[in-house]
Design a protein around this nucleic acid. Sequence first.
RNA 1: CGGGGCAUAGCGCAGCCUGGUAGCGCACCUGCUUUGGGAGCAGGGGGUCGCAAGUUCGAAUCUUGCUGCCCCGACCA
Length: 441
Amino acid sequence: MRLSQYFLPTLRDDPNEAEIVSHRLMLRTGMIRQSSAGIYSWLPLGHRVLRKIEQIVREEQDRSGAIEMLMPTIQSADIWRESGRYEDYGKEMLRITDRHEREMLYGPTNEELITEIFRDSVKSYRDLPRNLYHIQWKFRDEIRPRFGIMRGREFLMKDAYSFDLTEQGARESYNKMFVAYLRTFERLGLKSIPMAADTGPIGGDLSHEFIVLAETGESQVFCDRDLIERSAPGEDIDYSADLTSIIEDWTDKYAATEEKHDPKRFEAEVASESRMSARGIEVGHIFYFGTKYSEPMNCKVQGPDGKLVAVQCGSYGIGVSRLAAAIIEASHDEDGIIWPDSVAPYRVALINLKAGDEETDAACEDLYGKLENAGIDVLYDDTDERAGAKFATMDLLGLPWQIIVGPRGLKQGEIEIKRRATGERQSLTPEAAFKRIVDTV
RNA sequence: CGGGGCAUAGCGCAGCCUGGUAGCGCACCUGCUUUGGGAGCAGGGGGUCGCAAGUUCGAAUCUUGCUGCCCCGACCA
C-alpha cells in the first residue's frame, strides 16, 4: 500500500479522552474512531489488525476441531424466555422492538440461539460431540464503557459452544478449548495465564479465565512465576489424544485474579521468590455449564440405550476486538506500538527519504514491487514529508520492519533496515535487505 | 445508577470572572528556502462557540432546562 493513496488519519497529539495507552495509540495511529460511548469504527489500519487476530483465532479453533458458522446479531426474545435469562440479564441487554411490536434484542451472547439450532437438528448421540463457533459482534450495554475498545459496549467476540453426551465428554471438549486458547494467545505474541474462575451454579473446576499480563492491565493478578516460562503445545498437538496432563501442567501452580486471591494459600503454596503480583487483562473465558440451557430448552438426544438425555454443554469466549488493545498494552514503548509479527497490519514499512529524487524513487519502487510480489504486506511511505516526520510516524505505527532508503546510503549502494522492537539497524545492499526480510517470514 | 468534570476548527487549548469584530499551537492549502529523527519564512482555507429558551440594544461570555462525552465507584469478553 502506498501511503499517498491510503486512508490513515494519524494524530500528533493525544486526544484528551484517551486514558490508557492502547486507547491513545489506537486513536493516534488512526486505527479507530469513536462513534459514541463504547462504540467504535475500525479504520483501515485497525481493521487489518482485527482481521489478523480473527484469522489466528479461527485457525486455532479449526485445528482443535471446532466448526465455524455465523449467527445473527439480532435475536428474538422468545428463546431467552425459554432459558429464563430474558429477565435475569437486566439492563445490560439492549432490547429492541420491531415494527410488528415483536420483542427483539441485540445479542450479548449466543447460548440460547445455538441451543435452539442444535436441538432442532440433532436427535442422536451419534452426532455428538460437536463444537460450533462463530466470530460475531456482540453488544452489552455496559453501565460505564471505558478504556476505548478494551471495554466497549459493542465488541467482536469468538464464541464456541460444545455439545457432548456425557460429563466426561464435556470435560474433553473443555480441555481441547483450553489448549487451543494457549496456542492462540501465544501465536498472538502474548503471555497468557489460565486462572481458575467462578464456576457459577454448576460448581466444579471447569471454568478458567485467560489473563494476559500487561503493566497497564485493569485487574491485579497473583501467580507463580513458573507459569510465565511455560510455552503452549506446538502445532503438532494431537487433539484426539488425552490432554489431561497438559491441563494439569498449566493448572497445578497458584494463579488467581484479585477476586479469587487467597493470600494465605498464596504464601503457603508458592515460594517467596516465585511469588508474582502483576497486572492483567482478561482476554478469554471458558466454562462448562452442563445442562443449564439444554434442560430448560429441551435440547435432548437419544443415547445408545434409547433414552433421551439433555446434552452436556460448555461455552468458550475470546474477546477478539479487546485483544487488539491488549496486544498494544503488552507491546509498546514511548514512541508507539510494537506489533508482534503475527498481527502487524503490515510487515514492512518502506520509507522513501527523498520522494522525487530519481535514484531514491527507483530503488524504492523496485523494492516495493519485489516485496509485494513475494506476498509481503508493505506500507510504502512515498509522500514528500521530511525524514524526521516519516521516522516518527512509522515508529508510532509500529510495523515490525522498516526499510529506509535515502540518497546518502544509495551512494554507497546501501539501504538500511531497522527492527522496530529493538531499534537495531543494519546497512545492506537492496538485494541483501530484500532477502533478509523475505527470510524472516 | 451515585459522585466529580468537560463541551469554542480535525487534534490540543485560550477567551467566559468584568457581555461589544472568535483567537493560539499542531494538522490542512499555496509559494519560496530547506531536506537522515516530528524544518523556516510568507500568504491562505476552515468554527450554527453542544442544543433550546430566557435576560439584554447586543450573549462563546450571564440565567434556566436539556443533550453528549470523560473521570472515580459498584458490574463486566
